[in-house]
Design a protein around this nucleic acid. Sequence first.
DNA 1: GACCAGGACCATT
DNA 2: AATGGTCATGGT
Length: 260
Amino acid sequence: MWRGVVSGRWVELASRPNEVIARAVESQRDWSWLEEYLQLRVDLAEVFAEFPANDPHLEQAIKTCRGMRLLKQDHWECLASFILSSTKQIVQIQQITNLLRSRYGERVKVPNGCGDTFTFPQAEKIVSLTETDLRGCKMGFRAPYLHDAARKVASGEVDLKRIATLPLVDAQAELMKINGVGEKIAECVLLYGYGFPTAFPVDVWVARALSEFYFKGRKVALPKLRRFAAKHFGCQAGYAQQYLFQHIRLREKRMKASET
DNA sequence: GACCAGGACCATT
DNA sequence: AATGGTCATGGT
């Protein structure tokens, strides 16, 4: 079960075979905001059909991560979250974003008995904060990066809506105008926030997976990995990336669990 | 205490 | 085009 805030509303999700059970605070006559977030109209079979043929690692990933979908997250929240992600563990990223929410977000209605819940603070709100405020949320050297992003987004110097209309390379260059946003974070935002299907972020986990699966375990430099991915994974490379990422991380978790 | 975490940036080669 | 140091903070 998952609880969170989507489009400013509290929501609880439970997954069942071939369906999702959702609960909101007030009755919803229109769930399109959630269908968009979960990308429920995407036909996974059509996505997998675009994967390279005869790739046993992708086939294995499809099995271990069955049904997994890419989300379409809020542009600003996605950008800010990935700026905060650099060389941080995922649980720590959640800790930082939760601090930001509870201190500077807006409270949302929750069902009786559920804990306090807040929206992710808007760029305009982040701009009004000092670097000390931001460092107080445990983000360390990422504080000036987040503030620069908030300033450029709030002022319109970086137009997050317009980025959706650009070709991939131009959209990436636009995001990289922000201090603290390099190729990897830009590709994350393009994939998880905008749904560019060929965006292929290469983080430490994906780099490991690519090296192990496609380069016989040799250490391969990032630019070379990116070039390989661009030609090997095709027009749904983003989905391939997410399946490889989740596949290798689940395997790691199982390994650690069996050590004890 | 060393080492690493969904990196970016800067200087150097 | 690639390598190395640095940045803050917390977990193992």
